[in-house]
Simulated scan of single mutants.
Amino acid sequence: MFDRVWLNANLCTMADGLGVVRDGAVAARDGRIAWVGPRAELPGPAAETVDGGGAWILPGLVDCHTHLVFAGNRAGEFERRLSGVTYEEIAREGGGILSTVRETRAATEEALVESALPRLDALLAEGVTTIEVKSGYGLETEAEARMLRAARRLPGHRAVSVVTSFLGAHAVPPEYRGRQGDYARMVAEEMLPAIAAEGLADAVDAFCDRIGFTEAETEAVFDAARRLHLPVKLHADQLSDTGGAALTARFGGLSADHLEHASPEGLAAMAAAGSVAVLLPGATYFIREPRHPDVAAMRAAGVRMAVATDMNPGSCPTRSILLMLNMACTLYRLTVEEALLGVTRHAAAALGLSDRGALLPGLRCDLALYRVSAPAELCYWMGGNPCAGRVVEGMPT
């Protein structure tokens, strides 16, 4: 007998493209999908039957790139950019990431949890069941650890799965001004081992770009991650082509994210390595980056494409993954199928998670239900929220 079965619904299994099943059913047992297919073929009874009310059921959405935990905001910098100052100019003046560092260092762990919850709630309300959360606004061992501890606590407050990434190599803190190489070595040799010893990180990230860290500095951090048996991912080629896509591929990285300036050669290397390209259209939009990722080259190379919010206080203060679907289609010209794969199956792959992202027997029963007439509506509407419910490990939330 199944624990629970959802009936009177249409399915996007995301197992083979959209994998549409009209008048389908999903059955759960012990938090896993036990059966999925046409309702007429459902093989057995369930302890509980849930009427889907004609909704479309997708795998629970996966937001695979966020900076959800931070203190303060940067609305003042937003006003400056409206007057013509660029994101890069603000960063070089000591603003940008460093302004959030000052606020986050001063915040307690409890304050970080409390400030993150409303942002998390907005994503959950749209159907997110798994979210990645990065550090990177502490830039010292204890502050970075505090951010990651706060992220680890979120599932104790909400029904959500959280994956954490250590992003100590996000920017150079004020106390290391003019000594970027020294700071990068400290991240690799001191911060990362301490974070790993406490079990706070599921992966290691870095920002490799002309206002970030050099290729050699990033390699040192990634070498340290490899010694600690932690997978890597990279903020790559956002503002210039610094070879971040190829660097990610050399280390077998889970993903390279942004990629506005990545070369076709770098993208081909990612495809060969199995690294996922994480597209962040909200950041492109918000900082008015004129160059977009080379989606045609990604398709030609066979790179899997994910879509994420990049929720952060400086370059993408969004709380809507559904809006990111629309932006991915309108700005980058993704198809509906590509965009929806980007927040389900491919997003799960970008986090190294093979147990979710599709409606298949044996995977986690994480579901998102939507009151729409067709899956394309999830990418079509700009604003509004058709999510009618979430299921996390077989339990409605």
Results as ranks from 00 to 15, higher is better:
61 L>V: 09
35 W>G: 01
35 W>N: 04
22 R>E: 15
30 D>Q: 15
39 R>W: 13
63 D>F: 07
85 V>F: 00
52 G>T: 09
83 S>A: 15
38 P>N: 12
82 L>T: 14
32 R>T: 08
87 Y>E: 02
47 A>K: 15
84 G>I: 05
80 R>S: 14
80 R>Q: 15
92 R>T: 07
95 G>T: 01
48 E>I: 08
60 G>W: 05
84 G>W: 01
28 A>E: 11
27 A>F: 08
87 Y>T: 00
23 D>P: 13
75 A>N: 13
50 V>Y: 14
44 G>S: 12
49 T>F: 09
51 D>P: 13
44 G>V: 04
46 A>M: 06
77 E>I: 07
85 V>S: 10
34 A>P: 11
25 A>L: 04
81 R>Q: 12
40 A>N: 09
38 P>G: 01
42 L>T: 07
55 A>M: 11
94 G>K: 05
55 A>L: 04
49 T>H: 04
56 W>N: 02
94 G>E: 05
68 L>S: 00
22 R>F: 02
40 A>R: 14
97 I>M: 04
45 P>E: 10
52 G>H: 13
34 A>L: 07
58 L>T: 12
23 D>L: 05
27 A>M: 12
26 V>R: 11
49 T>A: 12
77 E>Q: 02
44 G>R: 10
74 R>A: 05
42 L>D: 10
